[in-house]
C-alpha cells in the first residue's frame, strides 16, 4: 500500500466521477459511466479486490450501460402523429428500422400513385417543419418518431388515447374536422389562421413539449396548441375532437 502510483490511480476515480456528474448529454454520460466503471475496476484490482473488480467490469460496465442505453433511447423521444399522406418516401426510408409499438405503423408502403392521386397534397413546408422540429429537440437530446394515421379523426383520437405526444396536421384538415363536429366548434377559440393561415397545426398534450416548441421553434409554418387530455380511461373517449381543448396561445 505504500506504492506511490497507487495514490495517482485512486485519484483517477473521483476525476472520472466528476466528469460523469457534470456531463449533461445523457448519451455522453453513459459512455463516461463506462469510463468510470473501467477506472473503478482498475482501482479494485490494484487494491487486491479481484472479485469486486470482476463484478464491476461485468455488471457495472457492461450490463448497466446497455440497460441504461436502451432506457434512455426509448424515453428521450417525442412521438409525433401525422397524416399518412404526408409521409414522404424520404421519411419512410429513415424510419424503416424503427420498432412500432402502436397499432398504426408508419411503414405501410403506400403505393406511389395513390399518394400522387390523393386529393390532399401536402404543402411543401412539411419537410422544413419536420427538420426544424428535429433541430429544436436535438438540442434537448430528444428524437422525433413519426406515426402515420389515416385521417385527422384517427390522429386526434390517438392524441386523446395518449398514443402520441403531439400531432401535426394541416390546418385545412382541422377546419374540416371542427366544422363536422358542429356544436363543438364553439369550444375552440378562433385562432389566427382565419386571417393568415399557417399551413400546419401542431397540437400537443404535454406542457413541457409546448414550452420547448413555443420558445425555440422559429418556423412560421405551424401554429402551436396545448390541449388538456383528461385523466379518464382512454377507451371511454368517444369523440374524435378533443372537447376540452384550450388553446393557450398560437405562435404566429
Amino acid at each position: 500500500m505504500t506504492d506511490s502510483y497507487l495514490y495517482i490511480i485512486v485519484a483517477l476515480m473521483p476525476l472520472s466521477a466528476a466528469m460523469l456528474v457534470f456531463q449533461t448529454n445523457p448519451y455522453h454520460a453513459l459512455i463516461i459511466r463506462g469510463v468510470l466503471g473501467a477506472m473503478s475496476a482498475l482501482i479494485y484490482a490494484v487494491l487486491g479486490a479481484a472479485d469486486v473488480a470482476l463484478t464491476e467490469a461485468l455488471v457495472g460496465t457492461m450490463l448497466a450501460i446497455t440497460l441504461y442505453a436502451v432506457a434512455v433511447r426509448s424515453s428521450m423521444v417525442m412521438r409525433l402523429g401525422i397524416l399518412k399522406d404526408y409521409l414522404s418516401d424520404h421519411i419512410k426510408e429513415k424510419d424503416q428500422q424503427k420498432d412500432q409499438p402502436t397499432p398504426e405503423p408508419v411503414l405501410e408502403p403506400a403505393p406511389a400513385e395513390e399518394t400522387v392521386a390523393s386529393s390532399a397534397q401536402p404543402p411543401p413546408p412539411f419537410e422544413t417543419l419536420l427538420s426544424d422540429l428535429r433541430t429544436v429537440f436535438r438540442r434537448h437530446h430528444m428524437r422525433i418518431e413519426l406515426y402515420a394515421y389515416a385521417d385527422s379523426e384517427a390522429l386526434q383520437q390517438a392524441l386523446m388515447d395518449r398514443d402520441v405526444h403531439a400531432i401535426c396536421l394541416p390546418t385545412a384538415a382541422l377546419q374540416e374536422a371542427v366544422s363536422a363536429q358542429g356544436d363543438r366548434e364553439s369550444l375552440y377559440r378562433k385562432p389566427d389562421w382565419q386571417s393568415e393561415p399557417a399551413p400546419y397545426q401542431t397540437i400537443t398534450r404535454l406542457r413541457r413539449l409546448y414550452d420547448i416548441m413555443n420558445a425555440e421553434l422559429a418556423s412560421s409554418s405551424t401554429t402551436l396548441t396545448l390541449t388538456a387530455v383528461g385523466r379518464s380511461a382512454p377507451t371511454s373517449v368517444s369523440h374524435a375532437i378533443p372537447v376540452s381543448v384550450q388553446p393557450l396561445e398560437e405562435q404566429p
Binding site: A38, A41, A45, A57, M62, I65, T66, Q97
Partner: peptide
C-alpha cells in the same frame, strides 16, 4: 486473470453500446 477477463469483456460492452448508439444516430 481478472485483467484478462476485463480486457475481453470491455470490448463486448463497447460493441453493444456502439450498436445502440448507431441505431440512435440513424433515427
Amino acid at each position: 486473470v481478472v485483467g484478462v477477463i476485463i480486457l475481453s469483456v470491455g470490448n463486448a460492452a463497447l460493441m453493444l453500446l456502439a450498436h445502440v448508439i448507431k441505431r440512435l444516430s440513424e433515427a
